[in-house]
Amino acid sequence: MKFGVIVFPGSNCDHDCYHVVKHVFKQEADYVWHKSTSLEGFDCVILPGGFSYGDYLRTGAIASSSPVMNEVVSFAKGGGLVLGICNGFQILTEAGLLPGVLMRNKGLKFICSRTSLKVENAASRFTKAYKKGQVVDIPIAHADGNYYASADDIKLLEDSGRVAFRYSTPEGAVIDAANPNGSVNNIAGILNEAGNVLGMMPHPERACEGELGPIDGKGVFESVIGAVLK
């Protein structure tokens, strides 16, 4: 299968994503410059982490109006798989592909740390390789990861099982003490209604090689590859 990694001015996790899908998972991959107007040939498009446009105005706001985003929206509407990680998640909310917004962390600080996540939905094309309720070790690195949405949107997400990951203790308890950034209901990642778009603040691409630490992020890519190749 073929991954496309979108590159915005200020993306800085694009090479990590490319490396993981290409060299760890041995799949085809290409970078896609933000001015590109075609996503032909890709099975999954990744919006990587970083500081697109220097986070000016709001995180992800300016990138969401980049030329390639029209293509990403049509690609998603056509059923293509879209994975937004960190700044990529912020861009997906600003582009309207996912509900809500990522606000400044409750403690105001940039947090770079390993976190425990509880897998809430293990049926999606991004999470099938996990078990429901499993706790995984995937790091975060962000200043604006405080997920907020209207009460109606949160209810809709919760009722339809669209919360993919929640910050938890290593034992799987979803409590305030395990919430690094103030996100509503400890939300760390959500799916769109059709289940073909995932946005998550933690970085699965940074948890794929034993030499570098935890490898629990592999499940996200294994799930996508499994879903496309099946």
Binding site: S65, M103, Y148
Partner: peptide, 9 residues
């Protein structure tokens, strides 16, 4: 509506 404000918040 489109860019300068995020009307969610």
């Amino acid at each position: 509506e489109k860019l300068l404000a995020n009307t969610v918040v």
